[in-house]
Each structure stands twice: as C-alpha cells, then as structure tokens.
Design a protein around this nucleic acid. Structure first.
Length: 486
DNA sequence: CGATAAGCCGATAACGGCTTATCGGTGCTTTATT
C-alpha cells in the first residue's frame, strides 16, 4: 500500500503539481493495489497523469495503446519536456533501423506507445512477451466500441493481445462511455467486470451551455449569424469534407476572420501546422470533419457548433467537450433540421456488410475485391477467417446495425427534445441532474450575451491594435515556419 | 437529406434544362525496386 503522502511527493517531483485533480489519486491507488481499472474522467482532467504516475511507482515498462500517431507524438513530447528520456512511440513514422533499435532495447524504456494495429505484428508481440510490462494502458478506450466494430477491427483484438502478454495490470481510460460502451470495453479487453475497479466521474461539463437551433432551410444564415457574434476561437463540425471547405471560404469572405478547414484530405504537415496555428490563436475558427479534435489540448475554445450532427451522443459529447477546458462559459450549438439524421444513416450504410453479402461470401468462401466498401470487405474477411457460423455472424451483424440505429435515434431525441437538454444528455449516461445549472440549455434558457463578443471592450478582436512586439514576432515566426513547410 | 454528376431530350447544331443516379466520415499499416 502506497501512502497518499508518497503519491503527492511523486506528483510534485515528476509533474510539478501540488495536488491531484478529481479521480486521479483514486485511479492510481487502485492500480498500485494491483487492480485493473476502467477510468471515466471528463475531458481535460489529466488522464495521462494516471498511467504516468502509476508507471513511475512500478517496476517495468508502461505500454500505452493509442489511436492516433499525433496523439503518441504529443505524449512522447510532453514526457520529454518533463525530462523523461525513456519514452518512445513504436509506429510507422520510424524507419526500419529506428524500429529495430527500439525493439532490441525495449526494457530500457519506461513508456512505450503503440497502435492496436502494431500489436498485430508478430515480431513486436514476441518482443513484448519478453518484456516486464508494469501497466497495459488503453488511452481513449471508447475507440474500442466506436471504431472496433467496423473501422479499425484490430481494436477488438486487444483482449487476445492482453492474454498473450500474460494479462498484465490494465488501465482503460476514456472521457465518454455509457453503460454499453463500458461493457464493450470490458468485454473486448477480457476484463472481469467484478474484478475491475471502475472510477467513474460525471461526464457533465457545467460551463458548457447546450443550445439547439432548429433550422428551416436557413442553416447557412444561422451559422453566419452565430459565428459573427460568438466569442472565438471555435470549432464547426460538418459531415462532409467539401462542405467544411466551402463554408470555411464563405465565412472567411463574409466575416474577415481567420478560418481554416481541416479533414483527412490534408497532408500530415498541413494538419500539424493548422493545429499549431489554432493552438497559438492564429486561427479563429476551424471548419472540420470528425477528423479534428482528438488530442487537441486547447484550453480557451469558446464554442463548438455542429452544422451536421454526429452519429451518437458519445461522439457529440466528445466533440463539444473540446470547448471550455479553462472552465469559462462556453457554448455548444447544434444546428438541427428535421431529417438530418438521414445523412448519418447513409454514411454508415457502407460500414457494415448486409446479410446478403454475408451469405454470398460464406457460400463462395471468398471475398471479391471491389464488390463492397473497404470496411465491409475487411469485416467479411474477418468473419470468414474466424470460422464463426453463419447464423451467429448474421446475428452479430444484426445486433450491430440495431445498436447504431439506437445511437442515432437517441441523438435525434436530444436534438428534438423540449425538456432540459442537459438532463436528456446525462440520462444517456445514466446520470441524474441533481441541481439546476446556470446557463444550462436552450430549453431552460440562457443568457446569450455572455458568449458573445463584447463590442465596447473590443475584447476578442481578430487583430488587436495593442499587439505586443512579442506577439508580432511570434506571428512573423510562424509565417516563416509556414514557408519552410511549403 | 442535399449537393453534384451523369444522362437524356429536342432537333438541320450546340447546349440549356430536365430527370435520375450517386455519394457523403473517421487511421493504422506497408521492407523493397527505379
């Protein structure tokens, strides 16, 4: 048993903080007792401290499964800033010799980041088997449920991987999970629900006002109106890349603010550049698809607008959770037009194979290339390889389709409800709203002015006339960076 | 659903205007030859 005083001293020594934030100490204490943990803490409460501090107090290497290369790079850099040299990300950004070097020196690292896909690599898995793993961490664990079912099936293999590695002490971390997602995470990792300590804090972010504006063919005008008057910076989400591009142009021309669009068509270098510019307040508004956001650690985002709604309440909460991390009043606005749900239905249609496809593939015993989407093809191949009986496969698929429909339906319920939005949102996570929240939602009524630009004080103008020379230099410097990248 | 592309129509020739069809969103990986 590690005394709380030791924990605090370690926190101060390694991270420089005087006290823990909600949930951190609880999590670390449980892990140090040897308990597997499922940790649900709201965005921006320092989840990484949980596995990092635990790692420092245990012998061996912390292995962290992370969904994005950029996220891995971020975490590596942050640890390096804290003077930790024994840290590496084992991924495709490395060349052959770098990779080999890390694999040969695994036990010299304290923190090792990799993707679920990388864990499928035989050579790497064999090396990890020889390693003393102090803690097996799954960062952004909701990806298991959100992506594992179709988009990134290797997420569903993590349980097997865990078993191969001798079931090391495990910590799964996320900011958004309702009961079903928690069940998915535990089941996938093959964690016993009764033996796993769940540290669950409210997903409610009280400083984010929840607003829905019901539109009638006037979304574009509504968007312009809102973006014009709201305090910046902010993010606007779209469900198409083209739309994100077009609207970025439109807003840039209409409002003379600094707007950029962000989606998967961008080159990696451009993505990094945009993220940096946004973080350093050189961009006011980002028009993005759901590619943007995970790992964006910016405190002062004032609004998140959804031009199109996402496919689930989890995704919605993830996305709106990116504003107001500094605790100041922020607003999440959903621009909703009845029928919007249909876009998501169509988007998801090609994710899962149909029963007809499944039958065809089982009969012919082969998946024909080009006969369906990449995601469908991969899933069909998985079914074929796994030798799951047809009836069972069918049932599983049917369940997944129903699940997606339910998720979307609840999102629509949220959009259309006349009751308190916060209550409806929290209900999805089986939470009750105990006391009333000031500036709660558009149904309870909010004071709109606190989210709007204060014209008199000229606060929040894109370019201030009193820019310090430091800031001007900084901007020149980033321009140079831009040229070089180009 | 809504935006866009493709196809079709009449009619002395190229093209506006119509209907119909299609598509939309997330990321990891890759080892070997000009």
């Amino acid at each position: 048993m590690v005394e709380p005083i030791i924990l605090k001293k370690t926190l101060k020594a390694y991270f420089g903080y005087d006290s823990f934030r909600d949930g951190q100490e609880e999590t670390i204490t449980a892990a140090l007792k040897g308990q597997d943990t499922l940790v649900l803490l709201p965005t921006g409460t320092g989840k990484s401290i949980c596995y990092q501090l635990t790692g420092y107090l245990l012998e061996g290497t912390v292995v962290i499964v992370s969904p994005l290369l950029s996220l891995m790079q971020d975490q590596v850099e942050q640890l390096q800033l804290l003077k930790e040299k024994r840290v590496a990300a084992l991924n495709s950004l490395l060349d052959y010799s770098e990779k080999e070097f890390i694999i040969r020196h695994l036990n010299e690292y304290k923190f090792l980041f990799l993707s679920p896909e990388m864990l499928q690599n035989e050579r790497i898995l064999a090396a990890l088997k020889q390693l003393k793993i102090s803690l097996f961490t799954i960062d952004e664990a909701h990806c298991i449920s959100q992506w594992g079912m179709d988009f990134r099936p290797d997420y569903l293999e993590l349980g097997k991987i865990r078993a191969v590695l001798g079931n090391p002490l495990t910590m799964a971390l996320t900011a958004t999970a309702n009961r079903q997602v928690k069940e998915d995470i535990l089941a996938c990792l093959k964690l016993d629900p009764l033996q796993t300590t769940q540290i669950v804090h409210s997903v409610d972010r009280k400083n984010i006002a929840l607003v829905t504006i019901t539109c009638d063919k006037d979304k574009k005008e509504q968007l312009l109106k809102q973006v014009k008057k709201l305090k910046k910076p902010g993010i606007i989400y779209f469900s198409s890349k083209k739309m994100a591009d077009d609207m970025a142009d439109f807003l840039r021309k209409s409002l003379a603010i600094r707007v950029a669009s962000y989606h998967s068509d961008l080159e990696t270098a451009d993505r990094i550049l945009l993220q940096q510019q946004f973080i350093y307040d050189e961009i006011d508004v980002i028009c993005a698809t759901n590619a943007f956001g995970m790992g964006i650690n910016k405190k002062n985002i004032r609004f998140v607008i959804h031009y199109h709604m996402p496919a689930s309440v989890e995704a919605y909460l993830q996305e709106i959770g990116r504003c107001g991390r500094d605790g100041k009043p922020s607003v999440a606005i959903l621009l909703y037009e009845p029928g919007d749900g249909y876009i998501q239905v169509r988007l998801q249609e090609n994710d899962l194979p149909t029963e007809a496809m499944l039958e065809h593939v089982y009969r012919k015993n082969i998946v024909l290339e080009g006969s369906c989407s990449v995601s469908q093809q991969r899933l069909l191949e998985n079914y074929l390889a796994s030798k799951i009986p047809l009836a069972q496969a069918k049932q599983q698929l049917r369940a997944r389709v129903i699940r997606k429909e339910e998720q979307l339906r609840y999102m629509i319920t949220y959009a259309e409800t006349k009751e308190c939005k916060r209550r409806v949102l929290l209900h999805y996570f089986e939470e009750k709203l105990n006391k009333t929240v000031e500036n709660c939602c558009s149904n309870c009524g909010i004071d709109e002015e606190i989210y709007e630009i204060d014209e008199k004080n000229l606060e929040n103008r894109a370019f201030s006339s009193v820019d310090s020379w430091e800031k001007i230099l900084q901007e020149m410097f980033s321009l140079e960076t831009f040229k070089r990248q180009d």
